[in-house]
């Protein structure tokens, strides 16, 4: 297990200290401590119900939208506490999220990508055009949609829709992109495209990805965290965790002895 770095170190993006989360009386996260580094892909793995998605959602306070959630502990984004010293709306513009089911709005491709900039007050068409093009290019989908920008986004295939959702978050120029099982609902080729995209994006963004697919975690992530029943069992570089895990439970999970 890595040590918790001092908050002043500049390569750390998130520092999580003693995080506990309760849904009513049920404890979903138990004393989580870890750090997420900049420009890396950190994967969160673990069996269903282990708390990895819940943990992901604490990073952009999406848990606030659910009733009866209590959080103790601290989460620092660049040394600022996200719960106590930051506005949730502002936080989510810096830490955006891509979901398991591709969920483009029932609007045109253009309007989907322009949504973020528009709610931030950008109105000029030339500016929006530029942002839309840049985001779609970054998401490696520009060539496929440039001739149908004003047609409904719902006409795209599942894999394309997911890349569109990624483009949508990129339009906000976030610092962190959270991905909650982004390829679970997609075919293998689309999955590969999105994995390639993530590996490319990490040069400019910090990425945290929840995945059920261990090969995916080992392929693209730099660090991996293994969650079990709300506890962080092991957190290490990916190659170490997958070739010589220190905890027996990690070994048993990743080799499929239980799941």
């Amino acid at each position: 297990m890595t040590d918790i770095h001092a908050k002043e170190q500049t390569n750390i993006k998130f520092t999580v200290e003693s995080l506990n989360l309760f849904y009513g009386d049920f404890q979903a996260l138990n004393d989580i401590n870890l750090t997420i580094e900049k420009n890396e892909i950190t994967a969160l793995i673990g069996p269903s119900g282990c708390g990895k998605s819940t943990f992901l959602k604490t990073l952009n306070r999406m848990n606030d939208l659910e009733p009866n959630v209590t959080i103790n502990g601290n989460i620092y984004l660049d040394s600022v506490d996200v719960n106590k010293d930051m506005d949730a709306i502002e936080l989510r513009k810096r830490v955006s999220m891509v979901f398991q089911q591709p969920n483009p709005f029932p609007k045109s491709v253009y309007d989907n990508v322009a949504y973020g900039p528009r709610i931030n007050g950008i109105r000029k068409k030339t500016q929006l055009d530029e942002i839309v093009e840049r985001s779609l290019k970054q998401a490696a989908i520009w060539d496929e949609v440039k001739d149908r920008l004003h047609k409904s986004a719902l006409g795209l295939s599942g894999g394309q829709q997911q890349r569109l959702c990624i483009a949508r978050t990129l339009a906000l120029e976030p610092e962190v992109i959270l991905m909650d099982e982004p390829t679970s609902a997609l075919d293998p080729i689309s999955t590969m495209k999105i994995e390639d995209l993530a590996s490319e994006l990490k040069k400019n963004y910090t990425i945290v990805i929840v995945t059920h697919n261990m090969q995916q975690a080992s392929r693209i992530s730099d660090k991996t965290a293994f969650f079990l029943l709300g506890n962080l069992v092991e957190f290490d570089t990916t190659i170490t965790l997958f070739s010589q895990p220190s905890d027996k439970r990690t070994e048993e999970y990743i080799t499929g002895r239980f799941g």
Binding site: L91, M97, Y115
Partner: peptide
């Protein structure tokens, strides 16, 4: 899903 996407992008 639409709500999640919109909130996830920092909408009020």
């Amino acid at each position: 899903d639409y709500r999640k996407a919109a909130y996830g992008m920092g909408s009020t």
